Computed example of a mutant assay.
Amino acid sequence: MEIRPLGAADRDAVRDIGARAFGPVPDEEWERRGETARPTWEAGRWFGGFDGGRIVAAGALHDITQWWHGRGVSAAGVGGVAVAPEERGRGLGRRLTADLLRRCAEFGHPLAVLYPATTPLYRSLGWEHAGAQHHVELRTEALRTIAAEPAPVRRAGPGDAAEAAAVVGAVHAAARDSGPVGWEPARWRGMLGGRDDYAYLAEDGFLSYRWAEDGSRLEVTRLVASSERTLRALWSLVGSGSSTAETVRACVSPLDPVLWLTRERGPYALHRTPWMLRVVDAPAAIAARGYPAGAAAEAELSIDDPQLPANSGHWRLTVRNGEGRLEPSRESARALRLGPRGIAALYAGVPAATLYRSGLLHGADPEALRDAEALSAAFAATPFSLDYF
């Protein structure tokens, strides 16, 4: 199988493979996805596996920013990975994904993120579960009376793409969020151009929602704001639909302020769609990430990354004053040993005790165990995403 970039003329073949692998997509939805994915196609970041001139596998590398403790880190959003059903069992999915991982490094992304259709494949190439997209169902009436005082809110469209990107990014930075995705304005233009998607902008907040196909509920795809005033205004705008929609299905952080704003919280179901993280360039990823200002940690690491050998070796990891550094070091008996899955999970805030018990982190020296506990505090996070790709 030869893997090479695809062009716009290949979209129908990609659609066919995706439909055969995961189910058909209605024409209108396909066109909507096409608009949002246009920047990825135009940048030559869709790739296909060819066998005898026929496309038998495909996948994309979206150019995204992922926020980690309030700092944006360049990442590749791996999406649309599919293999023609009649070609399965030949290892094509692994070959394609390994090639995409190599291209992530060539594009200069320190991180790669994906939503897995199958965990074993991606774990075998160094990805590990890190966070999730969360949906919660709320009573619309409970949202209607949230607003304490009005805040300036206006409708948003494709012409507001740059402002929407800036506002959403500023919210995640101020909140020290971990996991959310940031898109370039070109992608935002497609996201804001959907006929049945409605968006609103405030000086420090953004809302997008749509109606369920049967009109029975509202579906909030993104609602973020830096101030209580704007949060209340945007959620009450959603709540104004209470006369028609009894419930709202909202994509939120598991610690979203709305869960503390409503007068009556009551029991609710939280649906999680997990995503996986891969550290592509370990020193660059550590340097780009944010950390709590008061956190301090040092540890010797021994990393073994067969897919990306540049990450392998002996390193000294230091976190201090909100900054992280990973520098080459000498071999040490105190080193914490881990592979790419372990470094990805640590980066995402998985506690050292969990990593030890799951076999993702090893260290024979008692002092190394104390180092690992300090790293747990420095990397602590509750990762989430408001986007699916």
Rank of each mutant, 00 (worst) to 15 (best):
G131W: 12
L192E: 14
L138T: 04
R139G: 12
F107H: 07
A132I: 00
T119I: 14
R102T: 12
A164Y: 04
T140I: 11
A161M: 15
A174V: 01
G131L: 08
H129M: 11
L121R: 01
H172V: 06
H134D: 08
H172I: 05
Y200V: 02
R176V: 06
R102S: 13
L192P: 09
L125T: 03
H109T: 02
P152D: 03
Q133H: 07
L201P: 05
P180A: 09
A175G: 09
H109V: 03
A175P: 04
W188M: 06
Y200P: 00
V171Y: 08
V113P: 00
G179N: 08
R155G: 09
V167Q: 15
W188R: 03
G108T: 05
L143W: 04
L114F: 00
A186M: 00
L192Y: 11
G182T: 08
R144M: 04
E163Q: 13
L201C: 04
Q133G: 07
G108A: 07
D196K: 11
E106S: 06
A174P: 01
C104A: 05
R189K: 14
G126T: 10
R139T: 13
A148R: 15
P116K: 02
R187T: 10
L143Y: 07
Y198R: 15
C104H: 07
L100N: 10
E128C: 12
A174F: 03
E106C: 01
R176L: 11
A162S: 10
C104K: 04
A132C: 01
G194E: 06
A161L: 14
W127C: 05
V113T: 01
E106R: 07
L101G: 02
E128V: 09
P158I: 15
Y198T: 15
G194F: 03
V167A: 14
T140P: 10
L121Q: 03
H109C: 06
A175W: 12
L121A: 04
R187D: 05
A186S: 02
R154F: 02
R195W: 06
L111T: 00
R176W: 09
A147S: 10
Y198K: 14
Y198V: 15
E149N: 07
R123S: 13
S124E: 12
A112W: 00
L138G: 03
D160M: 04
L201S: 06
A112Q: 02
A156R: 01
G131E: 12
Y200L: 03
A151W: 01
H135Y: 11
P152K: 01
Y115K: 01
Y122T: 07
V168H: 09
G193N: 05
A165W: 12
G169E: 13
V181R: 09
L111G: 00
L101M: 08
A132D: 03
Y115N: 01
F107E: 06
A166S: 15
P116F: 05
G179C: 03
R139C: 12
L201K: 03
S178D: 13
H172Y: 15
L138C: 05
F107L: 06
A162Q: 08
A166C: 09
I146L: 15
G169H: 14
A161P: 14
R189W: 08
A105E: 11
G193M: 04
P110F: 04
H135M: 12
A151I: 00
A98F: 11
S124Y: 14
R176G: 10
H172Q: 10
A175T: 12
W183F: 15
D177Y: 10
A174D: 08
V136W: 07
A156H: 03
A170M: 07
T118N: 11
